[in-house]
Design a protein around this nucleic acid. Structure first.
Length: 722
RNA sequence: GGAACCGUAGCUCAGCUGGUAGAGCGCUUCGUUUACACCGAAGAAGUCAGAGGUUCGAGUCCUCUCGGUUCCACCA
């Protein structure tokens, strides 16, 4: 044996061996009990990062453990098309080349998109394999594969038939840069120092004598005002309720001209500003609510690109920030600006591009979530969460569910399978089944109203989570009751980063319970987030990321995996730098060398004149077997509770500090007698270590006397059998 | 405003249902005798954020305070 373990050669050798032997293929016909693990599909938007490496190492350890325990293990890999994020990343690339979506056009753009997808996918796939993931590659899926498309269509059409879909005016958080509606979970708030403008509205018919003053941070939206609201109990404004006021900024084409009504509504805060609130239902969620209840018109002063609409008169076409300055000038000139105060508040911005969100009314598709939420809540306690408190966290969110906006103006992903009759339904209204159809391709049947075929498809795409929310079902061939669906569903184990607990985990639970009357997974593991030493997220812009491939190349895959398990306590965030990762990986690289040298001692330096393979009754032998037995029990227990950080620590301490430092040292004076015990304890230790360090354990196990073809399918040690 | 999590050795972190403080890296001293210097032996280092409480006994349970992080809601 060489002095040092050559991790690179060993990894290549065993990857090839495992692949050829097909140990990791799940078998629906196997009499073994199933254990299924679903890999959260990484986005095809770039290379895997350290968080992925940890997540996948955890999955693989559990999979390997269960396989050794004798289960028919399915570890299913896949990748996600990640609509918005994908387009964002690709468009940034195109920008550098001086290109854009618009310049390329849909067809050319899609060609680039598929190329980009291939590149990202290849990087992800390569990393997966070299990390030693014992996945069933024959079942690998992409969220845009036909198998998934079928399931997604079933999801959509069944929602349609159950009357859970609707389209209509809805207040939507609109990102002007990404040109898309985003969800509240995709928004961030930024503290901004802005101004609060106190604007006087003249009461109609008083010719500049009576005024009502409102405080607003967005004077440019005055054009879209439809009312002023005051609290019904506010004594200051009793006399104004029911009267009309004149907008200091208005467009002659606006409904009602410059007139807005003063109404009362208890949702107005008497203490804020002047206690009078201008109502702009087109641009503010609260105003929208108040406006809806008071039956007020919805006007837009800002459009979806973040520019002023014709309603803003000569400000049309200006960006919001420019329009605000102009509006303030005009108000000053008109003597309508009473005062300006400094005002610090948090402004909603897009999580991805940090652009200020425009709350707008937009025509979007929604799923009514209440029925799904109610059904899911009854079954939530069947999922075993790690850490436990996530059951409450998710339960609270599902209880307060709001309808799910599922349409996105994107090009990358699933088009809504909705067709309108161009002739009978040119405005694409929803609700009349006769001049609409839900179909994957252009409907064969004619429109039932005009008996002709003028079908046009809805332009929008489905939200990415509409497909990934169905991942536990789609990957197993649902809606068909396939053999694999029957055997592997619900999944035994799922894992996720906590940041997508609502977007993804809660949705999977609701969708699964709705469509199959079953929870999607029995064990749900949330790992923590690895951050940098200052506690910040890893991000490309900060450049603080750590490349798992560099760690792997330098220290070996086994060592990198072990380093990651030290961060794997459920729900605990960790801090890391390249240096701290190196320190940990180095320690486990050294541990690998230790194993290698133990192997050298036991295998290569084996005494030649061995007389017996019988066990001895020497107290040291009994002692080490007792310690080994304790270790077996502890490691098994920790693995069953998914405490991998404890399991790795236990087996590490036993091998290094009990077996090597103490026991092996003592055997040197009675080497021949101890040989059987040495071999047994070492082989068993390797088996306990295999889920975490698959390569070196296979390498050494193969050199020891053993039964079977691979440690990866050797029986998991349960008790001392010696 | 509501909620959760965290605060343990210089650094990064473990410590399950309460019972004499742990690991890795780093540091000090010694060791190159026949598995291993990617090693071995010995060692220094913490009033477990602070204050109360429950208990025979609390890092571990309860309350409060301080500090840090995150999530949810609202922000005219």
């Amino acid at each position: 044996m060489d002095k040092h373990y050559d991790h690179k050669a060993s990894e290549e050798k065993w990857l090839k061996f495992w692949d050829e032997k097909g140990f990791f293929k799940a078998d629906t016909d196997s009499p073994k009990k199933p254990y299924s693990l679903l890999i959260p599909p990484p986005n095809v938007t770039g290379a895997l990062h350290l968080g992925h490496a940890m997540q996948h190492s955890i999955l693989d350890a559990v999979a390997r453990f269960k396989r050794m325990e004798g289960y028919d293990v399915l570890l299913l890999p896949g990748v996600d098309h990640a609509g918005i994020q994908f387009e964002g990343t690709l468009n940034k690339q195109l920008e550098k080349e001086g290109l854009s979506k618009q310049k390329l056009g849909r067809e050319e753009w899609l060609k680039r998109a598929w190329k980009f997808k291939e590149d990202s996918y290849n990087s992800v796939s390569a990393t997966w394999r070299v990390m030693g993931l014992s996945a069933d590659w024959s079942r690998e899926l992409f969220t845009l594969d036909p198998k998934v498309e079928k399931a997604v269509f079933e999801e959509f059409s069944s929602f349609w038939e159950q009357d859970l879909l609707y389209k209509g005016a809805y207040i939507v958080q609109w990102c002007p840069k990404d040109q898309t509606a985003i969800e509240s979970v995709e928004m961030e708030y930024e503290e901004r120092k802005e101004k609060l403008y106190f604007v006087k509205y003249n009461l109609a018919g008083t010719a500049g004598k009576e005024f009502i003053t409102v405080a607003t941070a967005r004077p440019e939206t005055i054009y879209a005002d439809v009312a002023i609201a005051v609290h019904p109990d506010d004594p200051k404004y009793q006399k104004f309720i029911g009267r009309e006021a004149r907008k200091p900024l208005f467009d002659k084409n606006a409904p009602g001209g410059d007139r807005v009504k003063v109404i009362s509504d208890s949702r107005v805060d008497k203490e804020f500003g002047t206690g009078a609130l201008k109502i702009t239902p087109g641009h503010d969620p609260l105003d929208y609510e108040i406006g809806k209840d008071a039956n007020l018109a919805i006007l837009h002063a800002v459009d979806k690109t973040g520019r002023m609409t014709p309603l803003a008169g000569d400000l049309e076409g200006l960006k919001v920030s420019e329009a605000r300055e102009k509006a303030v000038e005009k108000l000053t000139q008109a003597g309508a600006l009473e005062k300006v105060k400094d005002y610090t508040h948090s402004v909603p911005v897009c999580e991805r591009c940090k652009t200020t969100i425009e709350p707008l009314i937009s025509e979007e598709w929604f799923v009514k979530m209440k029925p799904l939420s109610e059904k899911a809540l009854k079954r939530l306690d069947e999922v075993k969460f790690s850490p436990k408190n996530y059951e409450t966290i998710l339960g609270d969110w599902i209880k307060d569910i709001h309808d799910w906006c599922i349409s996105r103006p994107l090009w990358w992903g699933y088009r809504l399978p909705v067709w309108y009759c161009q002739k009978c339904n040119p405005s694409r209204k929803v609700g009349k089944h006769l001049d609409m159809a839900v179909s994957l391709n252009a409907p064969e049947k004619p429109c039932q109203t005009c008996r002709e075929k003028h079908w046009v498809q809805d332009e929008s795409l489905l939200d990415t989570w509409f497909s990934s929310g169905l991942w536990p079902l789609a990957t197993l061939g649902w809606p068909e009751q396939t053999g694999e669906f029957k055997k592997y569903f619900p999944w035994s184990f799922e894992i996720s980063a906590p940041e997508i607990k609502y977007l993804w985990i809660a949705r999977m639970i609701m969708l699964s319970v709705w469509f199959t009357d079953s929870i999607p997974f029995k064990n749900m593991f949330f790992h923590g987030m690895i951050r940098d030493l200052e506690g910040r997220k890893f991000s490309k812009s900060l450049g603080n990321g750590i490349d798992p491939n560099e760690l792997r190349t330098q220290w070996g895959t086994d060592a990198t995996r072990m380093a990651l398990y030290t961060y794997s306590a459920p729900g605990r965030d960790g801090r890391a730098s390249r240096q701290t990762m190196d320190e940990r990986a180095k320690n486990f690289r050294n541990f690998g060398t230790k194993l290698w040298n133990i192997g050298n001692y036991i295998i290569e330096l084996k005494p030649e004149n061995l007389t017996t393979q019988d066990k001895s009754n020497h107290p040291d032998d009994k002692w080490v077997l007792g310690e080994l037995d304790k270790t077996i029990q502890k490691v098994t227990k920790s693995l069953n509770s998914f405490d991998l950080h404890l399991a790795t620590d236990e087996i590490y301490t036993f091998v290094w500090h009990t077996f090597a430092d103490v026991y092996i040292e003592k055997t040197k004076s009675r080497r021949a007698e101890a040989q059987p015990t040495l071999e047994y304890v070492f082989k068993t230790s390797l088996e306990l270590l295999h889920p975490f360090m698959p390569f070196i354990t296979e390498e050494l196990w193969q050199r020891l006397p053993h039964e079977g073809t691979s440690i990866s399918v050797a029986p998991w040690p349960t008790k001392i059998e010696f």
